[in-house]
Nucleic acid binder design. Structure first.
Lengths: 215, 215
DNA sequence: GTCTATATGTTGATAGAC
DNA sequence: GTCTATCAACATATAGAC
């Protein structure tokens, strides 16, 4: 079963590099992230690193992709179109809380979000697709919750999904500026206001998260 | 009264440059804004422009400051701590709708928001202060609205202010990626769900804004 | 597969002529 | 007050040795 040849090995090494890059970026943060910084961090030369990733944008996108992968594994796929709103809210809040421990990734995500708004940016389509996919699951779950009478009828499911996503992205920017901000606490309150039933379970294990919605 | 000396002239010229820069940036858009781009746009050399603004950051911050100033003049100070939630929502939605016509400013704001998260960035304090100031007015108005029973009690005023601001910032990023997105429509729906009375007046003159919350 | 060395471009800022 | 010319610093990407 031992795979032979450079292809499998290259892929494995690429994964290993990604894992290490993720670690370093998450911990150290990264302002004006450059290829060289990551290369140094993972113990390769800049050219050596670009042997695995053809361009800066591809590298950074791969890091975020890996992050999504790990988050989904750890906290469940919170974009599952068949999940209940409770489950989605629960997974979502876990991810948000986790984000507060990886400032470098939040910073990288925010920076790339802005850069990738350019329609010619290599990561543009990935961001669009990720966005759309996440909203679809959220909207479906919200619609189901509305039918049960558990969520407010004042909002269209699409608007709710947009809002949840926008709040999350926007809070990350505020949090980068004010690290004391309790992102999960604010989102919990929003969910409690719009879809009361979805929060009871999700925030029961996070009694500390509503101490300060803002400060 | 004709002021003499280079100081007054310098200030006037600086203002004129700012106005022109705002115009061009707003209309043409601006990706990865550089000093040279703006210099070209306003018809100066790069060095000529930096004669009025000592650094790149100061220039960009001045442009956004000017934008706030003009918005406040056109749509009222939506951060007035004594305004009603109706007035604030009204002004806020006007600004949001206006933003959809000045993509370059939205892009510049988003870019600088991320950059200025760095605590050593020259515009860091300005962003913090602007943020805090806006939220204060919103929170106070929301609290008053709650007391009248017009807004949901499920949310603390501080959380509401945070949410409104985060949604606004987050939607701008989504909108940069999907220009069809109706930012004001989404925000209207959110306000309708959280503080019903504040929307009736504010969105009555914008019947077209709820055609599509998302697309 | 990984390195060193480098090509090539851009940036923000400064010096000095006019 | 505005320009041209130039600067050093840094980026990404590539070529070629090993």
């Amino acid at each position: 079963m031992a795979q032979r040849g450079s292809y499998a090995k290259g892929v494995a090494k690429r994964e290993e590099i990604l894992g290490r890059a993720l670690d370093v970026v998450a911990r150290e943060g990264l302002r004006g992230a450059s290829v060289k910084m990551i290369a140094d961090a993972v113990g390769l030369s800049q050219a050596g690193l670009l042997h695995y990733f053809d361009s800066k944008e591809e590298l950074f996108t791969a890091i975020l992709r890996k992050r999504d992968e790990l988050d989904a594994a750890a906290y469940g796929p919170f974009d599952d179109p068949h999940g209940s709103l409770d489950d989605i809210a629960d997974g979502f809040l876990h991810v948000v809380r986790h984000n507060a421990e990886v400032p470098g990734l939040v910073q990288l995500f925010a920076q790339l979000s802005v850069d990738a708004a350019d329609h010619t940016h290599p990561a543009h389509d990935w961001f669009l697709e990720r966005s759309r996919h996440m909203r679809e699951g959220t909207a479906a779950a919200f619609a189901a919750s509305q039918e049960r009478g558990a969520a407010t009828p004042a909002l269209s499911p699409e608007a709710f999904a947009r809002i949840l996503q926008a709040v999350s992205d926007g809070l990350q920017i505020q949090w980068m500026q004010e690290p004391d901000l309790d992102m999960a606490g604010v989102i919990s309150q929003l969910l409690a206001a719009l879809a009361p039933s979805s929060v009871d379970a999700a925030s029961s294990d996070a009694a500390s998260s509503d101490q300060a919605a803002s400060r």
